[in-house]
């Protein structure tokens, strides 16, 4: 049953991801990306990570992508635009694609290796709670990266305000 659900959402994610790249209309692409995010969230739920799933929908689909859509609608780019102007990006895109393919192959290969189970098994998560586990890790082992991230976000925010005030 779990496998069937996995295949369902995985295929939705793949089809939508293809749609995002192939579709000519920028708003349709953004919509496909939203479908990818929601399908990924479903996969996270299957992996016993409901917190990540909720965060995925809330942050990526609910906040970031809606700002994309906002900007796309404000600028309303023409459907046929872009093919000529982006020629120099083609080799770059091929290179990035190659790097991702190699990464994917490495990850897929590493799944075949025997590995030890981490401390957060589904049983342990059911006991202490998924959100509690993430929270405890953030404020103990990953406190420094967490604080650095918040500082970075603050710097970005101050930067945006300064830039916006100048106009």
């Amino acid at each position: 049953m779990e496998l069937a659900i996995f295949y369902l959402f995985a295929s939705i994610a793949i089809v939508a991801a293809l749609g995002m790249v192939v579709l000519r209309n920028a708003v349709h692409s953004a919509l496909s990306l939203a479908v990818v995010f929601v399908a990924l969230a479903a996969l996270y739920v299957l992996l016993n990570a409901p917190f990540i799933a909720a965060a995925q929908v809330m942050i990526y689909a609910g906040a970031i992508l809606i700002l994309f859509v906002f900007v796309i609608m404000l600028l309303s780019p023409r459907v046929d635009q872009g093919a000529g102007a982006l020629k120099w990006q083609r080799p770059l895109a091929a290179l990035c694609g190659l790097v991702f393919a190699v990464e994917l192959a490495i990850v897929a290969a590493s799944a075949l290796l025997p590995t030890e189970r981490g401390p957060f098994t589904p049983e342990r998560l059911a006991e202490i709670g998924d959100v509690q586990a993430v929270g405890a890790l953030l404020f103990t082992d990953f406190l420094l990266p967490f604080e650095i991230t918040s500082l970075l976000l603050l710097v970005a925010m101050v930067g945006v305000i300064v830039l916006a005030k100048k106009r």
Partner: peptide, 22 residues
């Protein structure tokens, strides 16, 4: 009764804007 119900509500609520914008 999911452990993240409150987050789920916020996540679903944040999707509501799509319908109106689209």
């Amino acid at each position: 009764d999911v452990g993240i119900a409150a987050l789920y509500l916020l996540a679903v609520g944040s999707l509501g804007v799509y319908a109106i914008v689209l």
